[in-house]
């Protein structure tokens, strides 16, 4: 007999993550895939891989989606709950480190700090209009220096002399790095300087006025960077915990919430099944000419049937989606 499992999906700007948990909330499988600008492809590849690995043995009873692509994922996979990534990150973190008080999370485009008190989210902050110091910027710098992103942090650890890099803005940081490199500073020192700049920027902006209390958990893709972790520990002067599943915490949280939701409501899952995610999903961007807003509307079609629309400000297009969905 197939056993009951729950699926959590986090479609982020840089990575698309999938997590399958069992009834005991344990992770039985996880995938960390590069979104590479094509979330639909990443999702389908992820689902295919999961199906090959587990499809025969498990039954998905609930699906939760999160991340900036959570609506998209919900339409393609069929989800029971769509949740913002702050809540999912906090829930996952609490599962693995029950006493957690502070969560530092740095992902592809977003960085967050979440403060918990008495086991609930007490306060949070996200980066503002600027994505300086997030994973996508580190990615870019690694590519420019032709260093695999996986090795980026270990370069920083080999630094012997401090180099100060401007961290307020990614564009300034990059020009600063180039200036320092042209004057002869070693690449290790420059990368370490960058790690410190990002941490300084994070603490000055997001963590401003907040008490960073232990236990401190650091998660998100950037937690893999040992250089950043070391810079955080130096700056805060406290121990930082990197959970085992640091890179898929959003997806884990989404799976946990999906399980709770399905059990609470006693509903059958909206999950379309592994087979159906292999349908031909196409996203099309249309400019609506209904008014001078000229919204960039996204239309998602499965086998030529429009299943969802969004991006309109007036609701004209997204209303169409709801009618179609209730029919299917």
């Amino acid at each position: 007999m197939k056993t009951s499992h729950y699926l959590g999906i986090d479609v982020g700007s840089v990575s698309t993550n999938l997590v399958v948990i069992n009834e005991k909330d344990e992770i039985v499988d996880k995938l960390y895939l590069r979104t590479s600008g094509q979330p639909i492809n990443a999702l389908r590849n992820g689902m295919k891989t999961l199906y090959q690995r587990l499809g025969k043995d498990i039954k998905i009873e609930g699906v939760g989606t999160t991340g900036s692509g959570r609506q998209l994922a919900s339409v393609i996979i069929g989800s029971d709950i769509v949740k913002n990534e702050i809540t999912t990150h906090a829930i996952a973190s609490q599962k693995l480190v029950p006493e957690v008080r502070t969560i530092l999370e740095i992902g592809g485009q977003d960085s967050k700090i979440i403060i918990l008190k008495n086991g609930i989210i007490y306060d949070f902050a996200m980066n503002t209009v600027c994505a300086a110091g997030t994973g996508s910027f580190l990615d870019r710098q690694a590519a420019r220096l032709e260093i695999p992103i996986e090795d980026f942090g270990s370069f920083a650890l080999r630094s012997t002399a401090p180099v100060r890099i401007a961290g307020r803005c990614a564009v300034f940081a990059e020009s600063d790095m180039i200036h320092k490199q042209q004057t002869g500073h070693s690449i290790e020192d420059i990368i370490n300087g960058l790690c410190e700049a990002l941490v300084r920027n994070y603490l000055n902006n997001l963590a401003k006025g907040k008490d960073i209390e232990e236990p401190i958990v650091f998660q998100g893709g950037v937690a893999a960077n040992v250089g950043i972790v070391a810079a955080f520990e130096r700056a805060i002067g406290k121990k930082i915990i990197i959970p085992q599943y640091y890179d898929v915490m959003g997806a884990y949280g989404a799976a946990l919430i999906a399980k709770e939701e399905v059990i609470k409501n006693g509903k059958n899952t909206n999950f379309f099944g592994f087979e159906n995610t292999q349908n031909d999903f196409k996203a099309k961007s249309i400019e609506c000419n209904g008014c001078s807003n000229m919204c960039e509307v996204i239309e998602i079609a499965s086998n030529d049937v429009v299943v969802a629309c969004w991006g309109d400000r007036c609701g004209k297009w997204s209303a169409v989606k709801r009618e179609n969905q209730s029919v299917s």
Partner: peptide, 24 residues
């Protein structure tokens, strides 16, 4: 910015946080 995802996430999480506090 014209992308609304950032605004939606923050509002969602903020209201979630308040309701969570009350439930607790």
């Amino acid at each position: 910015h014209s992308g609304q995802a950032g605004m939606d996430t923050r509002l969602d999480a903020f209201i979630d946080m308040i309701r969570w506090r009350y439930r607790n």
